[in-house]
Design a protein around this nucleic acid. Structure first.
Length: 659
DNA sequence: ATTAGGG
DNA sequence: CCCTAAT
């Protein structure tokens, strides 16, 4: 706790002007002795590095390189050794313990030259821990402050930190090991071809800015500057040296985060996870399998992301989620369509009733969107949005390029039997269709990069599906006659089972063109602009892209009658109930529709007959509409205001229909 | 998922 | 009918 406070404080500017590095950890040394051999190696390397650093001065890149090249193995070994020598129970709490650093780090530090910025490793470990615990990304300085205090020696705080016994110390090794793991984990990220992220996971992370920003790359930019960036203006930098030290902290943080990150990851929610090529890196972005309802929402998420640089919390939240998720742009207009499980791309549904026995009854499906399989993306906080986009794009491309499967989900469950007919699968049932979903699944085995960019683009577009017509032929499935393909095509042609024969014009246009020779081509979309390529487009999609407008289905007099009757009984605030009561069997009438219809009925009743259009509604019904409307409006009014209208008055109201 | 309203 | 904000 103290440390945390310190950290915060430091962020706030408490950092002491004069940092002392060295001696902090003396106490621990005794423990460490055992390892000296190993340590020495490590230390030597460290010393070397330190020396280099000093020599090289500010150039951060050099540091990075050095670290990368020489230390890794040594460090790891060291860690291992430590573990072996001091096997101890791992405390889950280690994260909270600041002490760890000292114990582990202490010895090293002692050996090292005071100012070499070496302490860092230790420090950063600690820090990382702390930060991770806290979930603070931004505040590097914090950790520093802590250190200073310790170093400064002798602050009360210090004593506390050190006071801890073996436990803490023991924990340290664990931390290291974790770090190593992290590193290992990170490597997979290599899958992502992007130069910045994949390559040197571990060390890279240390200098995120380098990877992400060109400036750093050339080394022009002094470390200090970077620190500033990372630290924010608020954090005070004691000295140049100090600034150097910061770096490590950063690193530490990152690592820790990496370690922690997995906890928050969703496991196995989707098929994706199984096959998943997971990409993890720094700040985490992970995709959640949730279907975004609208673009706007997606956009919102995206914003979060950008903002989120600071915390675990965020990533946990899935800030990043939005990135990947963003794909499915097209949302169904139907309110119910989107709600299904995470995985499925989107549900498709049919408005018409299957009830018809017409010889060729076809199941009509509409795929509103496909979502890209879950991805894990890690990227430095300092990365630009542009690089984020690029990274995500690469990740997506990597997956897509491996080839895709289309999965069919029914009621959230995968339907594996490709030979089943729709009827057998229960897909001829309207209700079931509501729960039908498709997924795009990566072929994990495949080598990435098969597809050209253009192809990928198509895939992405498919996700976005701007065109109403988009149809997705199932690639892998050897479908039998009845299967999806026919169905999909049939969508356009099939006769309306329901009342309306009219298809929206858009529907008719759909199709065929899109399905080109390659089974893989999902959707043909007009050439995309650069923006479109971004996984998460910021632009507002045009309406056409969102969804098809439902076909117009004027209410018949009978329907109006039923509606009026129901409203008379239930009132105007219970459209769900009205729907259930009077339109339960009318799939195309949602409670929102009923509510809207009531609204228009009231309006219609109030205007002159000459102004009315469409099939005339009997005046009798319109009268009932007015009276019911008046009645229920009043009822509502009574309930609303606390002391609004005296009961006496309300009592006078008539209840024509109720009586 | 519903409800309530504006478009 | 659509789209949203609030529940």
């Amino acid at each position: 706790m103290l440390q945390k406070r310190l950290d915060y404080g430091s962020c706030g500017h408490h950092i002491p002007a004069m940092p002392h590095f060295p001696k902090a950890a003396k106490g621990k040394r005794s423990i460490r002795r055992k390892f000296e051999d190993n340590q020495m190696c490590a230390i030597e390397l460290l010393a070397t590095v330190a020396g280099k650093l000093l020599t090289e001065g500010e150039n951060s890149s050099s540091l990075a390189d050095i670290t990368r090249s020489s230390n890794p193995t040594v460090v790891k070994d060291f860690v291992k050794q430590e573990q072996i020598d001091e096997p101890t129970p791992i405390k889950s709490e280690f994260l909270d313990q600041d002490n760890c650093d000292e114990s582990t780090l202490g010895p090293k530090e002692a050996d090292l030259p005071p100012d070499s910025g070496f302490k860092k490793p230790n420090v950063f470990d600690k820090e990382s821990i702390i930060n991770s615990t806290r979930g603070e990304f931004g505040c590097l300085p914090v950790s520093e402050s802590v250190e200073y205090k310790e170093d400064r020696s002798k602050s009360p705080l210090q004593s506390r930190l050190k006071s801890p016994k073996g436990e803490i110390i023991e924990n340290c090794p664990d931390v290291y090991s974790l770090v190593d793991q992290m590193d290992l984990d990170v490597k997979p990220s290599a899958l992502v071809s992007s130069g910045s992220i994949a390559e040197a996971p571990l060390y890279r992370n240390h200098f995120p800015s380098c990877s992400s920003s060109p400036k750093c790359r050339d080394g022009t930019k002094p470390i200090v500057d970077r620190d500033d960036d990372e630290n924010f203006s608020g954090c005070a930098r004691p000295s140049t040296i100090t600034s150097k030290v910061y770096r490590p902290h950063c690193i530490g943080d990152r690592r820790v985060r990496k370690l922690l990150a997995p906890k928050f990851r969703h496991k196995g929610e989707l098929s994706n996870t199984e096959t998943k090529p997971a990409f993890r890196i720094k700040k985490m972005c992970y995709t959640r399998q949730r279907t975004q309802r609208t673009l706007f929402k997606r956009r919102r998420l995206f914003d979060h992301c950008s903002i989120s640089s600071s915390g675990e919390e965020i990533f946990r939240e899935g800030i990043s989620n939005s990135h990947l998720k963003g794909n499915p742009k097209k949302e169904a207009s139907a309110s119910h369509a989107t709600s299904h499980g995470a995985n499925r791309a989107s549900s498709s549904r049919t408005d018409q009733k299957p009830s018809f026995e017409s010889a060729d009854y076809h199941v009509k499906l509409r795929i509103k969107s496909f979502r890209v399989p879950e991805l894990f993306i890690e990227i430095p906080e300092t990365a630009t949005i542009g690089s984020l986009k690029k990274t995500v794009m690469e990740a997506v491309t990597a997956i897509l390029s491996g080839g895709l499967h289309v999965g069919v989900l029914l009621q959230g469950k995968k339907v594996r039997d490709d030979n089943k007919t729709l009827r057998q699968a229960g897909l001829s049932d309207d209700d079931k269709l509501e729960n039908l979903g498709f997924t795009l699944e990566p072929n994990s085995a495949q080598a990435p990069q098969q597809l050209t960019v253009a192809e990928d683009r198509h895939l992405l577009d498919a996700c976005d599906v701007t065109q109403p017509l988009a149809r997705i032929p199932p690639p892998d499935h050897g479908e039998s006659d009845n299967t999806l393909r026919p169905i999909l095509t049939s969508i356009t042609n099939s006769p309306e089972s329901d009342l309306d024969s009219d298809h929206s014009p858009t529907n008719n246009m759909s199709a065929p063109d899109k399905i080109t020779g390659s089974s893989r081509a999902i959707v043909v979309v007009p050439p995309m602009n650069v923006e479109a390529l971004a996984v998460v487009p910021l632009r507002k999609p045009k309406r056409s892209e969102l969804a098809q407008r439902r076909i117009r289905r004027p209410f018949s007099v009978a329907e109006v009658e039923a509606l009026v009757q129901a409203v008379e009984k239930l009132g105007t605030g219970r459209w769900r109930d009205v729907k259930l009561r009077a339109f339960d069997d009318a799939k195309h009438r949602t409670y929102v529709d009923l509510k809207d219809k009531w609204k228009t009925l009231v309006h219609t009743a109030r205007i002159s007959p000459q102004q009315r259009r469409g099939e005339p509604v009997p005046q009798e019904l319109l009268d009932r509409v007015l009276s019911a409307h008046a009645y229920w409006t009043q009822q509502q009014a009574k309930l609303q205001p606390k002391p609004p209208v005296p009961m006496a008055e309300s009592a006078h109201v008539d209840f024509p229909f109720l009586l």
